[in-house]
Amino acid sequence: MYSSAQLAFKYLKYWLTASNGSGHGVHSPFVFDFINNVLNDKREFDSFRFIENIRAELKDNQKEINVPDFGAGSRMQLNNKRKISAIAKSSLKPKKFSQLLFRIVHYYKPQSILELGTSLGITTSYLSAANPSAQVITMEGAPEVAAVAKNNFKQLHLSNIKVIEGNFDDNLPAVINQLSSVDFVFIDGNHRKEPTLNYFYELLKITERTTILVFDDIHWSRDMEAAWEEIKEHPSVTLTIDLFFVGLVFFRIEQKIKQDFVIRF
């Protein structure tokens, strides 16, 4: 894991060298469309307020729950007891990126959505609300964390979510065997090279030309950067977009020339 100072330096370099996010000079109609209709979509949807109210409640929740440690990339402390407020403050994806996931799903309308790493269910809620007709499968290793997420889904009246509990390093192959294909996947799991690549290669079994994979924290460590580079180089991948904190992977066979974009967001 990079130190805060190292990450800040990397982010500054990214900010100074990335495409400016306006779409000008981007030689890809698909990416130009993505920038204008997803990245630069400033609309506030009704569901945003309700989900962010839940986030605020979680940050104030002093209840302690059991959280097993799943390794170096889990961003969880070694002790098993943690306050919900501490989990909310350290593990939830920020509003900006949670709402980016919403906008991706809202725009491309994937019907099958998979999330590796439910945590307290904030990103899951955004994915679900973005397309209520989709099937959302989310995987969470800690049963008591999953229970909090399920309660949040109930409060938000989200009925298209299936939660699978247990270490998804073990459970993912079984989930993939049950799916013929997947349209959208958000991977926020074990932030190490080998597990991340294992998830990628497992997911390749059910990707199609319209599938979108979103990897969290691609610059979190040298390990994650190495995994991101290997994913970018895979022959099935035709287009990637690096937004620093997340990386998007596309398999568009109509993309004749492989392209990798770094875009300011």
Results as ranks from 00 to 15, higher is better:
F244K: 05
F97M: 07
I212A: 06
E165F: 00
V105S: 07
A72G: 09
E254K: 13
R75V: 12
L7T: 08
P235H: 11
L58D: 12
L248P: 01
R55L: 11
A174I: 08
S3C: 07
E230Y: 05
D223P: 15
Y11N: 14
R192E: 14
P235G: 09
E52D: 14
N79H: 12
K205F: 00
L120I: 08
P29D: 15
E44I: 15
N20V: 06
V67K: 04
I187W: 03
S74D: 09
I218C: 04
I161Y: 02
F251V: 09
I241P: 00
E64M: 13
K150E: 15
Q155F: 02
F261L: 06
L39H: 06
G25T: 10
N198H: 14
I161Q: 04
F97C: 06
K258L: 03
I35C: 08
I176H: 09
H234E: 03
D216N: 11
E52N: 12
M76E: 01
E225F: 03
I54P: 10
S221F: 00
E165P: 03
I137D: 01
H27N: 15
N167I: 08
S112R: 15
F244W: 07
L204P: 00
K150T: 10
F32E: 14
N61P: 04
G21V: 09
P143V: 07
F70V: 07
T240N: 01
T17M: 04
I137K: 02
E254N: 12
L243N: 04
G141H: 02
T118Y: 02
I187E: 01
I218T: 10
R222G: 05
D260P: 00
K59C: 10
I187K: 04
E115A: 08
L78N: 13
S98G: 15
L116R: 10
S98F: 00
A129D: 10
H157Y: 09
T17A: 05
S3L: 04
N198K: 11
N160R: 03
L101S: 05
I54K: 09
K150R: 14
S181N: 11
I87E: 07
R43W: 01
L120M: 11
T196D: 05
R103E: 07
D60Q: 13
E140T: 04
E115R: 01
F30R: 04
H106L: 02
S112K: 15
P132C: 09
I104P: 00
L197D: 01
E208K: 09
D169T: 13
H24V: 13
H234F: 02
V237P: 00
R209T: 15
L243M: 10
S112P: 08
L7A: 09
N198S: 09
F9R: 13
A86D: 13
K205D: 03
R75I: 11
K96F: 12
S22V: 08
Y199E: 03
F250Q: 04
H24D: 14
P132W: 09
S28D: 15
F32S: 15
S159C: 11
F261T: 02
T123Y: 00
L213I: 11
L78E: 13
N152Q: 14
F215E: 07
Q99Y: 15
K154I: 12
P29V: 06
I35F: 10
Q155T: 11
E225S: 08
S91E: 05
G25E: 06
N131W: 07
P94G: 03
G73L: 05
F45Q: 05
F261E: 04
V163R: 02
A129E: 05
